[in-house]
Amino acid sequence: MTPIITIDGPSGTGKGTLAVRLAHHLGWHCLDSGALYRVLGLAAGRRAIDLEDAAALAELAAQLGVTFVDGRVLLNGEDLGDAIRTETAGMAASRVAAHPAVRAALLDWQRRQARGPGLVADGRDMGTVVFPQAPLKVFLDASADERAARRYKQLIGKGLSANLADLAVDIRERDTRDRNRPVAPLRPAAGALMVDSTALSINDVFELILEEVRRVFPDQVP
């Protein structure tokens, strides 16, 4: 069986950065499931598809030509760059991800990413729905205010305008939507390692989880 590590949690906890770093350290593949929904939201906007039209979104999801190459996200060969990392893209992703038909359309694609030598998958339902058999499941959390502050620094660092208060409101709204959606709600998987990163650096979190990886996969860690 392919070794799998799932990292779930709300937006802004650093799970994407952590997943990429962990996958690079282990020499494994990395699945950014959140990017799939961000790409779908972007593609829907380009085609003027209503984000509440579940049937049209599921049809689009089934034919979505997404590939991940060296940390880049490509849609039909187009490098999307930061276009899918905006707050607007994040909110669109949360809305399209609430549709059961959309999640079903993307489920098989995500599961096919599990291949040797191993996979680190980050998202909202990696451990609960997509890879419930994963030997190591992590749920990464942080306070909404801390996540808003991190996102603010990230956007300002990229030269983009941002409002801290608005980011905090957006994050809380997204949390509520993700935790209360009828299918695959955001919640810790059974047996997940719970990590609150509010007062921790990304290095602290990485070392903490790497120690758990060594325990679960003693023959896999360099």
Rank of each mutant, 00 (worst) to 15 (best):
M1G: 04
M1H: 03
P3F: 11
I7L: 12
I7R: 11
G9F: 14
S11T: 00
S11K: 00
T13N: 11
T13S: 14
G14N: 08
K15W: 01
K15F: 00
L22I: 06
H25C: 09
L26P: 15
L26V: 15
G27P: 02
H29R: 15
L31Q: 05
D32A: 01
S33M: 01
S33F: 01
L40Y: 00
L42Y: 15
G45P: 06
A48P: 05
A48T: 03
A48D: 06
I49K: 00
L57G: 03
E59N: 02
L60P: 12
A62L: 14
Q63E: 03
L64C: 05
L64G: 04
T67V: 04
F68H: 02
F68I: 00
V69G: 11
D70W: 01
D70A: 05
R72I: 11
V73Y: 04
L75N: 15
L75H: 15
L75Q: 15
N76L: 14
E78M: 05
D79A: 07
G81H: 07
D82Y: 00
A83E: 13
R85Q: 03
E87D: 14
E87P: 15
G90W: 12
V96T: 01
H99I: 08
P100C: 08
V102D: 06
R103W: 07
A105W: 08
W109L: 03
Q110T: 03
Q110I: 03
R111Q: 06
R111S: 05
Q113W: 07
P117Q: 10
P117K: 09
G118M: 10
L119F: 12
A121C: 07
P132K: 02
P132I: 01
K137G: 00
V138A: 01
F139C: 09
D141R: 11
D141V: 05
A142K: 14
A142P: 15
A142H: 15
S143N: 12
S143H: 13
D145A: 13
A149N: 14
R150M: 06
K153T: 00
L155G: 06
G157K: 10
G157E: 10
G159W: 07
L160S: 10
S161Y: 09
A162W: 03
L167F: 10
R172F: 01
R174W: 01
D175W: 02
T176Q: 05
D178L: 02
R179V: 14
N180F: 07
N180L: 11
P182I: 10
P182N: 13
V183N: 09
A184Q: 08
P185G: 00
P185V: 01
L186P: 05
P188K: 13
A190G: 12
G191R: 08
G191L: 09
G191S: 10
A192P: 06
L193E: 10
M194A: 10
D196H: 13
S197P: 09
S197H: 06
T198I: 09
L200E: 06
L200D: 05
L200C: 09
L200V: 08
S201H: 07
S201R: 06
I202P: 11
N203Q: 12
N203W: 11
N203M: 10
V205P: 12
V205S: 13
F206R: 12
F206M: 12
F206S: 12
L210S: 15
E212C: 15
R214V: 13
V216Y: 12
F217P: 03
P218G: 14
Q220K: 15
